[in-house]
């Protein structure tokens, strides 16, 4: 079983590069290979013109010699060391003189506003404080790359929002190159310069946040963004003419898909009371400002957002203001 295949990508200096995907998509495995915590079967990892791993020539630099920083999901603060010793650990390993190490620990603690915590032990800190210490421990090394593995997923929702802003400002201020793994697409959109979307061990697409958000032609990505995905038959792939539940409809067809295909559209793109596609209203919910409908369209269940009021159980006609064809 291969966890990751054909994952080719480049990260540029000073960039926050995120790897996003559902759990089990192989994003963490990829990160661990880059850190040297796992050994890929084949391939090459080059970092700053230095080959870290090459299956052909048998090069495999151990993690400690790769010069990176790491912030794991659990933060992994060593409970037997005080905060200051946690932060200073990497400096000691690099044999940085004691005075300089102390100065750098104080400096980073000050800029992360954790200087009051230096004498404490990790178990005496709150979740948010622990997360800051874990980031400080990586930053103090001034590494060329920091690996983040879902560093915010152990914070509660309110703190997570705050930490997101804090982290982005910090990384940009210090011009740090970061490889950031998360399953939360919105976190990735907010933080990243570029995003790689992974699905079942493959990188499906690499793009800017705006670019990723517009890639509704990738069903796995569309699903995460809450698009409707229904099966349909393409009648004319040049014009994008599809047959959907007995009605004809024209959609974008960027991949020129023929025959059986998926039609992808946003809930807000469903126009109730227009067009000729028949649907049945299963459920109507008021969610503030507008109504959210669950509709039965042939064998598929879709969501629609509308200001129009129709009854539950009634038959309605709908139209799609925009739709995209993707291979099934």
């Amino acid at each position: 079983m291969e966890a990751v295949t054909n994952a080719t990508f480049k990260v540029f200096k000073g960039e926050i590069f995120s790897i996003v995907g559902p759990s089990g998509s192989g994003k963490t495995t990829l990160l661990r290979c880059i850190g040297g915590l796992e050994t890929p079967d084949n391939g090459t990892i080059v970092f700053n013109d230095r080959t870290l791993f090459d299956s052909k020539s048998g090069i495999n630099i151990p993690p400690e010699a790769r010069g990176m920083g790491y912030v794991p999901q659990t933060w992994a603060l060593w409970p037997h060391m005080k905060v200051k010793d946690n932060i200073a650990f990497g400096l000691r390993m690099r044999r940085i003189p004691r005075e300089e190490a102390e100065r750098r620990v104080k400096e980073i603690a000050k800029s992360l506003r954790i200087e009051d915590l230096l004498e404490r032990y990790p178990w005496q800190l709150s979740g948010g404080q622990q997360q800051r210490v874990a980031v400080a421990r990586a930053l103090v090394l001034r590494p060329l790359l920091i690996l983040f593995d879902e560093p915010l997923s152990n914070l509660d929702a309110a703190l997570r929002e705050e930490a997101r802003v804090w982290l982005k400002n910090l990384l940009k201020e210090l011009n740090i190159t970061a490889l950031y793994v998360t399953h939360d697409i919105h976190e990735a959109l907010f933080l990243s310069d570029r995003i790689a979307f992974m699905y079942s061990g493959r990188i499906k697409v690499i793009d800017t946040p705006e670019g990723i958000y517009s890639r509704r032609d990738i069903p796995e990505l569309a699903q995460i963004f809450g698009y409707n995905i229904v099966r349909a038959n393409v009648l004319d792939h040049e014009k994008g003419l599809v047959e959907l539940h007995g009605s004809h409809l024209t959609c974008d067809n960027p991949h020129k898909v023929k025959g059986n295909a998926l039609v992808i559209f946003a809930p807000s793109e469903v126009k109730i009371g227009y067009g000729s596609i028949k649907a049945k209203v299963l459920r109507k919910s008021f969610v503030g400002g507008y109504l959210e409908y669950t509709l039965k369209l042939g064998d598929s269940i879709i969501r629609a957002i509308s200001e129009v009021t129709v009854k539950e159980g009634s038959e309605v006609f709908i139209d799609l203001s925009k739709c995209t064809i993707a291979p099934s």
Binding site: L37, P62, Y70, T74, A76, M93
Partner: peptide, 22 residues
Amino acid sequence: DYSLEEVARLHGAGPLKAIVKV
């Protein structure tokens, strides 16, 4: 939680150092 050892490795500790220190 073996992230504890992994962070030590990535932050510059060799395997023996990581075993002894962490």
